[in-house]
Design a binder for these strands. Sequence first.
DNA 1: CCTACCGATCGGTAGG
DNA 2: CCTACCGATCGGTAGG
Lengths: 193, 193
Amino acid sequence: MENQPISPKKQRIINAAATLFRKRGYPATSMRDLAEVVDLKASSLYSHIGSKEELLRQMCFENAERFRDGMTAVKTEHSAPVERIQALLHFHLQMAIDHRSSVTVFNDEWRHLSSPFLEEFLILRKAYERDFQSIIADGIAAGQIRPLEPQIILVTLLSALRWVYDAYKPERGPAPEILKAQLSELVLRGLFV
Amino acid sequence: MENQPISPKKQRIINAAATLFRKRGYPATSMRDLAEVVDLKASSLYSHIGSKEELLRQMCFENAERFRDGMTAVKTEHSAPVERIQALLHFHLQMAIDHRSSVTVFNDEWRHLSSPFLEEFLILRKAYERDFQSIIADGIAAGQIRPLEPQIILVTLLSALRWVYDAYKPERGPAPEILKAQLSELVLRGLFV
DNA sequence: CCTACCGATCGGTAGG
DNA sequence: CCTACCGATCGGTAGG
């Protein structure tokens, strides 16, 4: 990924695109829809961006990097599996709050990437999942995590947090700290008392 | 919803459409893609179906009915909140196994319905969620469910099951009974030992 | 169930 | 950043 500086105008376009992609999905969002939101003609978008798919790529890979960096930080700051899992859970929730639209696009729209970006993306995602899964396996080996299939635990945990990206609005729902506390308790300790 | 008999050919088209809509999403699936899968020209599809959106409607409302009927059955067969929740969890997993593609479309593609079907669909979904949420509230009142926001519990529970629709293949993963047992344990009793 | 075709819309370019 | 425009593809229809 090249890292040229991004102009403010370009950033506005990216943000508007993330919101539209989240709400309608990537294929159902037209460049004319996007242009209207940023008060431009569709053709003028191309002075700032290369293509529609470049926008999608930017969102997918930007968040792949954020999750990779988050994983690195968590592994550096914590050594016990249980603490690592708790920290990752909080990190996922913070990502949902700070980068709601672009993380939703990262979660749901990556399949519309074309080759070779799709393959590159899947490699990054696989690496993240492998890291996470091995933390879970460590927790099981230490007798602190329920001894179930690590793959099932991983996907269920990630899936349980997914609604937050789609549906949580900090201004409407509970405060972020309350949400984090309730979700941690629910996921880590279970539905039943 | 009218209930005219559905010809075998029409059913084949619906099934093929469900698989394509699940894999690529509704907007990114063209009628020419669909025609190719069922060995027809695109125009010939219209001898069997009314429109592309009619296919989407069929899948969305068919499953809305299945979930409504499932909810009715669970409430008839069980009276304790905890048993009802356990039965609903098993019911959701059975739906994922029996109707994988069409339930994924129901979950993810309903937003592409147009008026007034979108509004009608949301009413049905809301009713289901209200039923489910009040069972959770009953469980909390009875001291059997963790006393958290019922809305958070509901969406987290439904979300935790969602990956199964997208990713579970009975022929590759664990047997359905094992999956059900592990998922129940994980969701109901939590990640931590 | 096909061939032939329709108007609308798509992502994107040329040229200023 | 706009006007003007391109070829491709879309969902769908006419007519047999």
